[in-house]
């Protein structure tokens, strides 16, 4: 059932939260680290592994330093929001559930043209891939729809279905806004009506400058090495904790370091200090960490180990 048109960015988020909560998803909160996409949240990456059923939905702030445009480009931001849904095993009616979510945010399926266009997803840094589509609404990509086949080098059994909505772009389309900074963040009739620009124009400028010109590359490089070393060290520690006498493999703390390394790589990339040939090497290093974290996770309870 198509609902009335939403009036603000946050209303779209709230409706998605309500919709997916009604479908039985656990509505999680964003992960408290810098990531490039919602997929990096351990609720997706790690929980896609192993055989335990899982259903979660959440907003994830995402940072892509190279996409910064000082807040001037109508569509590009170095910090934006993704809405992420992950359900394992993928239900047979996932496409219908997805279409229901579009109706929930006011897209009338009788008036628009929704298409599932082939787009296979691959994350070289996570050692992950899946098959699916980008979903087009009137020629615009509004979501990514993926059936995970592998994560961290492990086959996904059962398979998770993953939906990713680029929230700003989707909201701009639904609200009919041409420049992201002009988009109402809260209700336009609220006593203190705020636009997206009121919240983020200044931060986009500040971060664009820092990402492109100011970030200390020597320090970032060192942090990258540190994160890599710490990840390795955590995973190399024996699973048996001498203090509690319990078996406690530390997959999540190690994975935090992997996320960190990945984001530091993105920052270094934005600073233009990584050459084309080095790029592949760095991606390979992050992938190696992701793989080891996945190896560790599947030995844990949440990872399906008995």
């Amino acid at each position: 059932m198509t609902q009335t048109a939403p009036r603000s960015f946050q209303e779209i988020i709230l409706r998605l939260q309500a919709y997916w909560a009604a479908q039985g998803c656990a509505v999680l909160q964003p992960y408290d680290m810098e990531v490039g996409a919602g997929t990096f949240h351990p609720a997706t990456t790690l929980r896609a592994l192993g055989n335990r059923p899982w259903a979660a939905a959440y907003v994830q702030p995402s940072r892509r330093p190279t996409d910064g445009r000082y807040g001037e480009n109508p569509n590009r931001l170095q910090h934006y929001y993704q809405y992420q849904v992950i359900i394992k095993p993928s239900p047979a009616n996932l496409q219908d559930l997805y279409l229901g979510s579009l109706q929930a945010i006011g897209i009338d399926l009788g008036l628009h043209d929704i298409r599932f266009v082939e787009d296979d997803w691959e994350s070289p840094t996570l050692g992950a891939w899946g098959l699916g589509w980008e979903v087009w609404c009137d020629g615009m990509e509004v979501s990514q729809f993926t059936y995970f086949q592998q994560v961290g080098g492990h086959d996904c059994r059962p398979v998770s279905g993953e939906l990713t909505y680029g929230l700003e772009r989707l909201a701009m389309y639904v609200l009919g806004i041409d420049h992201v900074m002009d988009m109402p963040f809260n209700d336009p009739d609220a006593p203190i009506a705020l636009k997206y620009g009121d919240v983020f124009a200044q931060t986009e400028r500040e971060y664009s400058r820092w990402n492109f010109d100011q970030a200390d590359t020597a320090m970032l490089l060192k942090h990258f090495e540190d994160a890599e070393a710490e990840c390795d060290r955590i995973l190399a520690a024996p699973a048996l904790d001498p203090k509690t006498g319990k078996t406690i493999p530390m997959a999540h703390p190690a994975y935090d370091q992997c996320i960190k390394a990945s984001h530091l790589f993105n920052l270094l990339d934005a600073r233009g200090v990584i050459s084309v040939t080095e790029r592949q090497a760095y991606i390979g290093r992050v992938r190696a960490l992701a793989r080891k974290c996945a190896d560790a996770f599947v030995t844990t309870e949440a990872g399906g180990a008995a």
């Binding site: 008036l111 628009h112 043209d113 009137d138 020629g139 389309y173 041409d178």
Partner: peptide, 25 residues
Amino acid sequence: VTVANNATADHGATILKGNRKVLSA
């Protein structure tokens, strides 16, 4: 020329408007 997969009550006006907007971006 764009080809949609849906016949709508407004004869494609909404679809065309959306496509035009994406094209212009």
